[in-house]
Computed example of a mutant assay.
Amino acid sequence: MTHPARSSALSAQAIRYLISGGGVVALDFLSFCLLTRLWPDAYVAANVAAKTIGALSGFFLHKHFTFAGEQAHGAPTQLTLYIALYVFNMALSSAIIFGAVEVLGWHELLAKIVADVIVVATSFVTCRLLVFAQRATGAVQRR
């Protein structure tokens, strides 16, 4: 059975993630739309650039707003983990977009939306449990 305080903290983080993540996704998506308008055939490169813009804003929003509090890792460790997550997300979303466009014949914007839904869901779990994990009660170690 889930402890009520943990359930409440998870709900609050999920709401903050939706707010800040919504801004990050909007920035990412608008960047992607602009870049694919300028270079229509470069949708994978546009996705990489848009994900980079989103990731930069996302790190600061998630560190200081979404998962604010006593965190288990210091900023250097968090940044390293976040960059690793970003690289994974970029590769995953680019592969989904490429496959959806080239194999399934989808429009690149539809492929981007589907890829982002998958990436956002997996990112929340990874950020919460690993990148911005909360410090355990009584723990004083900071990496």
Score class of each variant (00 low, 15 high):
residue 118 I to A: 15
residue 37 R to C: 02
residue 88 F to C: 08
residue 112 K to P: 00
residue 35 L to Y: 04
residue 74 G to E: 09
residue 106 W to H: 08
residue 117 V to Y: 05
residue 107 H to W: 06
residue 28 D to R: 00
residue 27 L to H: 06
residue 71 Q to T: 03
residue 118 I to T: 11
residue 25 V to D: 02
residue 97 I to H: 12
residue 56 L to Q: 09
residue 132 F to M: 02
residue 30 L to P: 01
residue 64 H to S: 07
residue 23 G to F: 01
residue 88 F to V: 09
residue 135 R to S: 04
residue 63 K to P: 00
residue 130 L to W: 14
residue 120 V to S: 15
residue 75 A to I: 10
residue 77 T to F: 02
residue 126 T to C: 12
residue 90 M to C: 14
residue 38 L to G: 05
residue 83 I to Q: 13
residue 24 V to S: 06
residue 38 L to P: 00
residue 91 A to N: 07
residue 114 V to E: 05
residue 121 A to C: 08
residue 135 R to H: 03
residue 43 Y to H: 12
residue 113 I to C: 10
residue 37 R to D: 01
residue 69 G to D: 05
residue 32 F to V: 00
residue 117 V to D: 00
residue 20 S to P: 01
residue 52 T to W: 10
residue 113 I to E: 00
residue 121 A to D: 01
residue 68 A to M: 03
residue 26 A to I: 07
residue 84 A to G: 10
residue 84 A to P: 01
residue 48 V to Y: 06
residue 93 S to V: 02
residue 78 Q to C: 03
residue 102 E to C: 03
residue 61 L to Q: 09
residue 40 P to W: 06
residue 40 P to E: 06
residue 74 G to M: 05
residue 37 R to M: 04
residue 23 G to L: 09
residue 89 N to F: 01
residue 20 S to V: 03
residue 62 H to Q: 14
residue 82 Y to F: 15
residue 66 T to Y: 09
residue 28 D to E: 13
residue 128 R to S: 05
residue 83 I to F: 13
residue 105 G to E: 06
residue 68 A to D: 07
residue 103 V to C: 13
residue 80 T to S: 14
residue 87 V to N: 08
residue 49 A to M: 10
residue 128 R to V: 00
residue 28 D to Q: 14
residue 134 Q to V: 00
residue 34 L to R: 03
residue 116 D to L: 11
residue 46 A to H: 03
